[in-house]
Computed example of a mutant assay.
Amino acid sequence: MAEINIERKKKPMWPWLILLLVIIALIAWALYEMTDEPAETEYEEVPATGMVSPHPDPLMTTTNNNV
């Protein structure tokens, strides 16, 4: 009787490489987001009324002590 060699097909490697690259990209993005300092400071906007509010303390005082 004749002997028949049966070889299994090798599974492609590229789906595993793509999965590995996606996982590495997600880890890199997470590390970047955790270590990144915020570039902008958000300020609360105050509506303009057209009025000027006086400062409680004078900004500059002048004294004249000529004796």
Rank of each mutant, 00 (worst) to 15 (best):
R8Q: 14
E3K: 07
S53G: 03
E40V: 11
I4T: 08
M51N: 10
T35W: 05
E44T: 14
H55S: 11
A30S: 14
K9T: 13
A28G: 13
M34E: 11
E40S: 06
V22T: 08
A48R: 02
P58M: 03
A2Y: 11
E33T: 07
Y43K: 00
I24Y: 01
L21C: 14
P56T: 03
A2D: 14
E7A: 06
N64I: 14
V22C: 10
H55P: 01
N66I: 10
T62Q: 09
Y32P: 00
E33W: 08
M51D: 11
A30G: 15
I6H: 13
T61E: 15
P12C: 02
E44W: 00
E7C: 03
P15Q: 06
T63M: 07
Y43G: 00
T62Y: 12
A2I: 11
E3A: 06
N65C: 05
L21V: 11
P12K: 10
W16L: 12
W14T: 09
W14Y: 09
A25H: 01
I24C: 09
P38L: 03
P56Y: 05
P15I: 01
W14I: 12
K10N: 08
A28N: 04
L31Q: 04
V46F: 02
A2G: 08
E33Y: 06
I4F: 06
I23N: 09
M34K: 13
T63G: 06
E37P: 01
T63K: 12
N64K: 14
N65G: 08
N65T: 05
T62V: 12
M1I: 14
S53W: 04
M1A: 15
A30I: 09
I24E: 03
T41H: 01
T61P: 00
D36P: 00
I4R: 06
A2C: 07
T62P: 03
M1K: 14
A2M: 12
W16Y: 15
P58K: 09
N5H: 07
M13C: 02
M60S: 04
M34R: 11
I24R: 02
P58R: 05
I27H: 01
A25R: 00
P56A: 07
Y32M: 07
A2F: 12
A2V: 13
T61K: 15
P38M: 01
N66V: 14
A30M: 13
L17M: 05
P56M: 02
M60I: 13
K10Y: 04
G50K: 10
K9M: 12
A28V: 13
T63F: 10
